[in-house]
Amino acid sequence: MHISEGILTGPSFWATTVAGAAVMAWGVRDMKCFIKEQPERKPLLGMAGAFIFLVSLIPIPAYMGTCSHPCGTPLAGILLGPGIGAALAGLSLVLQALLFAHGGFATLGANILSLGLGGAAGGWLFFKLGRRLGLPLLAAAGLGGLLGDILTYIISGSILGGHLAFFSPQPQYSFAGYLAVIMAAYVPVQLPIALGEMAVTGIAVRSIGRQRPEVLEALRVVSKVTLAIVLVFGMAVSVLSLSSEARASSSVSVAEGGKSKAGKPGAYAGMDEKVNEAMAESAGAAAHDPFINLEDKGDVWNAMLLAGGGLAGFIIGRSWHLLFGRAKETPNGPTHPVS
């Protein structure tokens, strides 16, 4: 699941490279902390890096008789933590570019963002959430593997879609349109792989837990700072993508004199309309307006997003003790949380 070399140029290249370098810096800081705290485990980093590289070469059966390779980074994130997992994913990408011409140097930053941040940090985050919600190792690690993979695809698709929509000459679609096309192409190919990775990650972590539980205990180095960084980054990316999408749709409206194809001022004529119209035409029916058109209802959609965010925030806040442990009661009041 790599963005191929030579695809990203100009601002996309610089933005992803700088962001990827930041993720690497965060991971290297975690690696240094790991060595400082446990100097006797220094070779484990290299061995774990080799392991990640190896996992990305493992064949997973997908369609009839075919096979593909997993990302491997959710498993790395689960076993080694998000920062180290992301950094080792970056180093693994360097070796893959050198040995197999897989990925490349110019897309290294983008691939670190998708495979390192999405795969390793995302996989770790969902694994931790699963564990805190009481899921067994198999299910929690499987959840981490599946959602880490899906997050990887979403980030890759967003980077590619953003590059094509905003920085390519004569784009055919908007950002949302390209994202829809890319995801439509990903789903049939990548979903079986994500399911395979879910199974392999879950079974691998459960096997390690059954055979050598002390290994999992020794490796579970989790800091609240890393979780906060992942959450803040995720929110920042969401906000930026939403605002850029809003700018793109408003610029389309302005370019068309404030009238969209449908004749509604400011309405977004994008991929959905084209696909729906084509489907209706091929079925011999006339396309009509959606029964529930949120775009005509002013800020209802934004209000729903806000309400969803608020609800998610409430659930996270309500489950905070599951994520970070309850505050330890002392005679002087609560102090450090017990994890």
Binding site: V28, M31, G46, G49, L88, L91, S92, L95
Partner: peptide, 11 residues
């Protein structure tokens, strides 16, 4: 730490 890890990985 990065160079050492890369060396170990390759080895």
């Amino acid at each position: 730490v990065v160079v050492d890890t890369l060396g170990f990985m390759y080895r």
